[in-house]
Every structure is written in structure tokens, then in C-alpha cells.
């Protein structure tokens, strides 16, 4: 008897739009999975809370958005609803986690042990509601949970050396090494794993200039919109492919 398709939920904020586009454009295929989306963008995403043993929107307006994105009328996400849930984006931002720490680590007196990095990662995931939700969902044991954080900002879209931007605040980060990135990903991964959640890390080959995403993965129209946060369907396909490998 052939095995049934795995029920997969891609849960997230505006970043899940790139996954939808990747599927629509045919750059991403998910054989063996039956996929649903669950989430909301922007302020509405903040209205998703853990209430009565399920992740659910807490306002009617948010429920409408969630139902629309899901397309199948689902407005709650509870343990056991899916075989797997991939948290995608969800405001766990690598662009906020990496630069301050790597800037610190570049100093002569800035070496940080794995345990210290792990403590820093614990703070970041602890402050991220979606990461807490992911650990809660995984804790039930019926659902395998994965987390692909919001990727690093796209290089070349904005002047990153302008006031308030990454290189102005953290000028040493463009010299970040692969080893440093590996250590930060490992810290995040270990912390999430302790909660039963598997990290899907941004592929190394997509990273340029220390802590940025290669311009070729910019969202369409990024130059005009100045959107360095969101990525192309091709990037989403890479991330979901990484998830599929991890899920196997």
C-alpha cells in the first residue's frame, strides 16, 4: 500500500509569500507532501497567539486573513493537525541576530564560547513568540517542527553603510567568516533542538559580504521598493528544499 502524503503546514509571516510564489512558478515542487499555509503578514501576524491549546488569531480581522491565506477555512493550528510544520520567517530574524554578535566577535577581546553563544541564542528565541510557539508545538510530540528564520538582508538593495543601517552600526561584520556564521547557526540550532525544533539554516552559498544575502535572491522589484528583507521564489525553493532534506 503506498504511503500517504505527509501533511505539511508552512506557517509564517510575509515571508511565506515567496514559498507560495515558488510553487506557483514551478521552481519548487513538493512531491509526497500535502501542503497548507497558515499565517498572516505584518501587524496581523502579531495577532496570532497560543490560546486554548492551539495557535489562533485573536481578532476577527486576523481570522479573516488567516482563513484567506490558508484557503481551506482553517483558522487554528494545533498539535497533531499536521505531520510537520515549517515555521518560515516568523520574525526570528537572522539580520538582527548575526550582525551585533559578529561585530562583537571580530574584536580582539570579543571571542565568545559556544556556551555564551548558546545563551545569546536562548535569549533571542525566548523573546520570539513564534519560536516559543514552535517549541510548544514540538513538545506535544505528534508534529515534527522545523524553523527557517527570516534570512539575512539582501546585499545591494540598500546602502548598508548609511546611517542606522547594518554596516554603519556594525562596521566589522563584512569580514565575518564562515566559521563565525557556523557557530551562530549552531547556537540557534542547539537552542531550538532542545525544544524539539529543527533549524533550517540559510544555505552558506547564498551569503555574501559576511552577513548579507546574495543580491541574486532579491525579491522582484527590490531596487525600486528598497525591500532587502524579502526574497525571491528561487530563494524560498532553496530553503524548502533544505527542509525536505532535513525532514527525510
Amino acid at each position: 500500500m503506498p504511503s500517504r502524503n505527509k501533511l505539511l503546514c508552512v506557517f509564517g509571516d510575509s515571508h511565506i509569500g515567496s514559498v507560495r510564489k515558488a510553487l506557483d512558478a514551478g521552481v519548487l515542487k513538493l512531491p509526497g507532501f500535502q501542503l497548507e499555509f497558515f499565517g498572516a503578514a505584518g501587524e496581523t501576524f502579531r495577532k496570532l497567539h497560543l490560546v486554548d491549546d492551539a495557535i489562533r488569531p485573536t481578532t476577527d480581522a486576523a481570522a479573516e486573513v488567516v482563513a484567506h491565506i490558508n484557503g481551506k477555512g482553517r483558522v487554528t493550528l494545533a498539535p497533531g493537525d499536521f505531520d510537520m510544520v515549517l515555521f518560515y520567517g516568523c520574525r526570528l530574524r537572522l539580520s538582527e541576530f548575526f550582525p551585533p554578535l559578529i561585530h562583537h566577535m571580530q574584536r580582539d577581546n570579543g571571542y565568545l564560547s559556544d556556551a555564551v553563544l548558546r545563551a545569546a541564542a536562548a535569549r533571542v528565541t525566548g523573546d520570539c513568540r513564534a519560536a516559543r510557539m514552535a517549541k510548544w508545538l514540538a513538545g506535544d510530540g505528534r508534529t515534527r517542527v522545523f524553523f527557517a528564520p527570516s534570512p539575512l538582508l539582501t546585499w545591494g538593495v540598500l546602502d548598508m553603510a548609511a546611517e542606522g543601517r547594518t554596516l554603519a552600526q556594525y562596521p566589522r561584520v563584512d569580514a565575518a567568516t564562515r566559521d563565525q556564521r557556523d557557530r551562530l547557526f549552531a547556537a540557534l540550532s542547539d537552542d531550538l533542538a532542545e525544544g524539539g525544533v529543527a533549524l533550517i539554516r540559510q544555505p552558506e552559498h547564498t551569503i555574501v559580504e559576511g552577513v548579507f544575502t546574495d543580491a541574486k535572491y532579491a525579491i522582484e522589484g527590490a531596487d525600486e521598493s528598497g525591500d532587502a528583507a524579502h526574497k525571491s521564489p528561487e530563494f524560498a525553493a532553496l530553503m524548502v528544499d533544505a527542509f525536505v532534506k532535513a525532514a527525510k
Binding site: 551585533p100 554578535l101 562583537h104 566577535m105 565568545l112 555564551v116 545569546a120 541564542a121 535569549r123 533571542v124
Partner: peptide
């Protein structure tokens, strides 16, 4: 202390 480390940590 590096960024993100809580005071107790």
C-alpha cells in the same frame, strides 16, 4: 558581555 545576553546569564 555580548549582545543578547541576559543580565543573569
Amino acid at each position: 558581555a555580548p549582545p543578547f545576553l541576559r543580565e543573569d546569564a
